[in-house]
Design a protein around this nucleic acid. Sequence first.
DNA 1: AGTACCACCTGACGGC
DNA 2: TGCCGTCAGGTGGTAC
Length: 262
Amino acid sequence: MPELPDVSVFKDYFDKTTFKKKIERVEVFEKRILKGTSEKELNKSLKGNFFKKSDRYGKHLFAEIGPDVGLDIHFGMTGDLEHIDDLSKIPPYTRLLFVFQNGEGLAFEDQRKFGHISLVHNFDELISQNNLGIDALNITAEEFLEIIHAKKGKIKSILMNQSLISGIGNLYADEILFQAGIHPKSKGNQIPEDIMKKLFSTMNKVLKTAIKYVAKTDDFPPDFLINHRKENEDCPGSCGKIDIIKINGRTTYFCDACQELY
DNA sequence: AGTACCACCTGACGGC
DNA sequence: TGCCGTCAGGTGGTAC
């Protein structure tokens, strides 16, 4: 689930639920989640401190603790955050728990254990360590065009490549290409300039709209592809039927009638 | 450089 | 009802 809009929502939730709360300890229930650190080291860095501020970059959440220490939180496929009032009621799939001195907690849940949490020195280190390209909501039109025109691969693969542009996953890649009227198999270097500009503005529009709806896809406007992800479903543009193909091994939904192949 | 698989995990769903 | 294969919105590695 967690792509850029979801992580943006997690950031707001994180800020709201950790603000001004002193960290008493960190409990790790699943070591696999930790990358390059340990429960002991985490506690050493966090105990007695506060989360000062957070930032989102791509699909990552950066939680700053001190001038030279912070957390890199990645939500994998099933990661989620849940604030806890009662520490005796820890949600299922809690892999790590921040315990605050006021008796509250924040659970990092992750059913499939693909998420991870690591210690980083700062925001820049998070970006370089994960080899992340420019954030999808901060990239300029010029940078966007340049990156995509330099690639001969399929546009959907390019959009999903976190080291080129970071934040877009399978779901939103399909949505953006659908709304921009571009076939997902189009080659990056063959998309005309004006279509590229449309793709850029569509990417911004889709991501911002998703954030506006708190990434709750059920509430998205009916002309979005997102709630029509079924084979043979009518295209929201009522021009044809939704097709399914595989790109990069990922299920891809699109409308052959309104998405042009370049 | 681009692509095609496999792997990591767990649960839900459809077919038989 | 029960077993089994397949699939899921992410990422990383390997090999052609």
